[in-house]
Design a protein around this nucleic acid. Structure first.
Lengths: 216, 216
DNA sequence: CGGTGTGAATTACTTCACAGCG
DNA sequence: CGCTGTGAAGTAATTCACACCG
């Protein structure tokens, strides 16, 4: 199990998890890779192989016990606890993200508990109930009360320097909402989220219509 | 050139494009794959191979002309025109997305020009300046004035049925903000955007600390 | 039987390495 | 020379196919 697990596998697990919670809510007690696959548009073999990285949770001839597998995934993914998150930035995008705190983040186990900005003019304002703190104070704050996860939602121009400050202060996971690629030392995980990028890959297909009979 | 181009390639192009616009703004006239690669954390060979799917834009010994390449990518990705988008849903997530219209979507070439909801109680309200229309009327609206792209931002429970209605009405690209996987016939492109998913892959690494000396 | 778990085969993607050109 | 464009080599991810077990 301390085998290196491909990132693509990790990215699929939350989907499996969500499907399982739905099945559990519906009172289903056992499910086959076939059935999960149909719901999520993934091949059964892929699901079995993905899960096999973590253990042998299925029963031959029956399938996977929904309860057990749900709990295993909770442990694997860290959903069995809550995660505190800091938001870096207090402008438009940041406020938009902060508004997810009630609707999407909190129910999923994430709590935005601090908001920072590097612009003194913004420090002291309020974003979704959080007083905006001065980013210059992050080192001290992290010593008092560390937070592992930061959401970076600033103008792209300052993204790299703020990332450096975050890493310096000990943040090890960054969700990057800016459109620039930030560089971090090994061990610091960064994920890019950019709704515009997703739209942009759609327009490619619209602008370059139908490679003949797109099979899939 | 009508060769099948891998999706991963398409997903990287918008990044190249953004980097190029920055270089152009900075007055740089020529750039090597090496330099782009350093900025974006991508190997030079990858950039050259990606671009070679679309043509031969570089000059040996010099690199790529920034202006020319920027324009080529604009054409390839469809950034040389504006795209009208409909928003399906008028609840919390939808309002959050609508608020991106001014800050992120519009400057990137996307305009949210219609908002739909299937709940009659919500029809007639206003979301970011758009009157909410009845989704039942979408077929007629599409005949009058077609829109290719829909952003789906509803509760997961109704995502599939609304997708069916969108496809039926002729929408061929869907940006899916719900957490459920929707099924569409071939030829209809769907992209998933889910900020919670991205956070969830981060917690995996936090919950399963450091596979020994993560090299990369 | 029916469905998992998994090596082996296949396919997809990335990187190498070098010929060729400005 | 320096850097692109690209077949060839190498890696990574997916799918196959079947032994095995409840």
């Amino acid at each position: 199990m301390p085998l290196k697990i491909p990132d693509v596998v990790i990215e699929r697990l939350p989907n499996y998890y969500r499907q399982l919670t739905e099945l559990r809510a519906a009172g289903v007690s056992t499910v086959s890779s076939q059935e999960i696959g149909e719901a999520l548009d993934v091949t059964p073999a892929q699901i079995r192989k993905d899960l096999s990285y973590f253990g042998r949770f299925g029963k031959q001839g029956r399938g996977y016990p929904v309860d057990r597998l749900t709990e295993e995934l909770e442990t694997i993914l860290g959903f069995n606890r809550r995660w505190r998150v800091m938001l870096v930035g207090s402008g438009g995008i940041a406020r938009t993200i902060a508004s997810l705190n009630d609707g999407s983040f909190r129910p999923a186990g994430f709590d935005i508990v601090r908001v920072y900005d590097s612009d003194p003019a913004r420090v002291g304002r309020t974003v979704n109930g959080n007083r905006v703190r001065d980013l210059a104070r992050i080192d001290a704050d992290m010593r008092d009360d560390p937070i592992e996860i930061a959401i970076l939602a600033t103008p792209g121009a300052v993204a790299q320097e703020l990332t450096d400050a975050l890493v310096q202060a000990g943040v090890c996971s960054i969700l990057n909402y800016t459109s620039v690629v930030v560089h971090t030392p090994p061990g610091v995980e960064v994920r890019h989220v950019n709704p515009v990028l997703a739209l942009q890959t759609l327009t490619y297909h619209l602008a370059n219509p139908a490679d003949p009979m797109a099979t899939r």
